[in-house]
Amino acid sequence: MSSPLWSLVKREISVVLRSQSEFVYPLAFFIIVTSLFPLAVTPDPVQLAFLAPGIIWVAALLSILLSLNGFYQADYEEGGLEQLLLAGVPGSSIVIAKSAANWLVTGLPLVMIAPLIGVLFNIDMQANWVAMLSLLLGTPTLCLIGSIGMCLTLGLRNGGVLLTLLVLPLFIPVLIFGASAVQAASIGLDYSGQLAILGALLILSIILAPHAGAAAMKISID
């Protein structure tokens, strides 16, 4: 017998893995967007290496944004969320479980595929590792922050547009420090400060996002 939190994570993952569009689409989006840049901007390896940190991070941010909807909207419409609340599962646990599942299904594959994209952009080994590390620290933060926005816009028509407007400003610090860590590494500077800030943002969002999300969910369901 397993704890409700873990069965919730398992359920979220198995639901998403069964609808392939939810699962493959964000990853495909990431690969397609990043691989279009060399074609559209320049094939010059030096310039590409210069652009790479920003491109990888922007694409990762947008694909996380794309993946959020699949974890909340359907569950809200099918009545699953209210059944969870009625089973006595705290709203904050729901947010934690959904964010964990979201990251495992969307964030983790991005982290894994990032070094390949790095090679495509001709960035050196060191910067490639830092890109992976910064995504490892940054993408869970994006999932958690996104979940707050998602809980606020549940049940709204055109919630997607509002979600983007609500959540993007909060994504910006993660984007800035993530891209800047990779940039610093690629020109041989110290990047530990940026990674430390990414870690701090992650801890902050792990502590705050579940509560903010739970409060928002309560308003949306009322």
Partner: peptide, 17 residues
């Protein structure tokens, strides 16, 4: 909640499971 079972219009079933 330990004593309550609510079944509403939205049935709370996951179509993919």
């Amino acid at each position: 909640y330990a004593h309550l079972l609510y079944i509403g219009h939205a049935l709370g079933l996951k179509p993919k499971l």
